[in-house]
């Protein structure tokens, strides 16, 4: 890293902090000064909510995606595989779940990654811990939860997501499901250890910028639409609207939320603002969180992709175990909060 990078970085960070600190007063002035809305009406409170939350979430996303994008240049799938190959279970499951968070992953690469891991001697259960944590503990979800609910919810989400990945992978490993992997997988020769040449700092920073551009470019309409919806509900829908349906007393709401969530395919950016709206109107935190985890952690398209390498029995076990993990997390949060 050169001195120039450090200087530009520090200046950018200072500017970011200065702007971020002004967002709340700015939204207030815009709502009541410029737009001349009457304080206290549902519309003005919805407008202020929208004008504050949208830039806030966007700014948080930008900085975190940049940092994560740079961190990911240090964790190639090859390096992760080297670390995990031949690991004992337990410790291997923990390591795999943690690496799942920082190793770059997209669900279209799930199959080559799965084969690459299994054929190179990464135990099946350890591979699963990785495959579960990679989509479930998601940096966009983490940023949105932090921005909209505070650090406690964000930490609990990351912690329970990792626990589900560790435990589910461990159980799948114990069940000895190897013969429920398609035979051709084991006939594939693992590839060379070749890695693309290690990037220099200029390239790492460029990767960070590309990650911001790619992901923000893709998710911003969901974030804006989600916050707008949240704002609408914030202003108009009565306080306890969701309490009967998704409140703590409705015990069946947690499994229902998971069953509805699995076939839904959305990214975290679309789901979290909706969670916010549900929670404000009396939904229980555990129920809303279980819904989100089911949507992003157990997606139908990913199951269809994984069907190429996993026999139906193993897919069913995978969904069953992870689903049960999410169920436990849902009830646990409802009990604690």
């Amino acid at each position: 890293m050169t001195r120039k990078h450090l200087l530009v970085g520090t200046a950018a960070l200072a500017l970011w902090v200065a702007v971020y600190a002004q967002l709340a007063p700015l939204a207030h002035r815009l709502t009541y000064g410029l737009l001349r809305l009457v304080p206290g009406s549902p519309f003005s409170s919805a407008a202020e909510f929208f004008l504050y939350e949208t830039p806030k979430v966007m700014m948080l996303l930008t900085i975190i995606l940049f940092v994560v994008g740079v961190i990911r240049t240090f964790f190639t799938p090859q390096r992760t595989r080297r670390i995990l190959a031949g690991r004992r279970e337990s410790a291997g499951n923990v390591l795999a779940a943690l690496l799942g968070v920082v190793t770059p992953f997209c669900s279209c690469s799930a199959v080559p990654l799965f084969i690459g891991f299994v054929t190179a001697g990464v135990p099946l259960g350890v591979t699963f811990s990785f495959l579960i944590s990679a989509p479930m503990v998601n940096e966009v979800a983490l940023v949105l939860l932090f921005g909209l609910f505070g650090w406690k919810v964000a930490v609990l989400y990351a912690g329970t997501g990792l626990s589900i990945a560790i435990a589910s992978g461990w159980i799948i490993g114990r069940m000895g499901m190897e013969r429920h992997v398609e035979e051709w997988v084991y006939q594939t020769k693992p590839g060379s250890e070749d890695e693309a040449t290690a990037p220099d700092w200029r390239e790492r920073l460029q990767d960070g910028r590309l990650a911001v551009r790619d992901i923000v470019g893709k998710v911003w309409p969901y974030v804006v639409a989600g916050i707008a919806l949240g704002a609408g509900i914030h202003g108009y829908v009565p306080e306890d609207f969701m309490a009967a349906l998704m409140g703590k007393s409705a015990w069946w709401s947690v499994p229902a939320a998971i069953i509805i969530g699995i076939p839904m395919y959305s990214n975290a950016a679309g789901i979290v603002p909706i969670m916010l709206a549900l929670l404000e109107k009396g939904a229980a935190l555990g129920t809303a969180l279980a819904f989100m985890m089911a949507v992003i952690g157990l997606s139908l398209p990913e199951m269809i992709i994984l069907r190429k390498v996993l026999k139906p029995r193993l897919i069913a076990v995978f969904i069953g175990i992870v689903g049960t993990g999410i169920l436990i997390v849902g009830y646990l949060f409802n009990m604690l909060f």
Binding site: T76, P77, Q78, R81, P104, F105, C106, C108, S109, V111, P112, L113, I115, G116, F117, T119, W184, T188, K189, P190, G191, S192, E193, D194, K308
Partner: peptide, 13 residues
């Protein structure tokens, strides 16, 4: 082809 991909050392596309 995914098998060829893996045998050439590609795990991330």
């Amino acid at each position: 082809d995914i098998q060829e991909m893996v045998s050439r050392g590609v795990m991330f596309t």
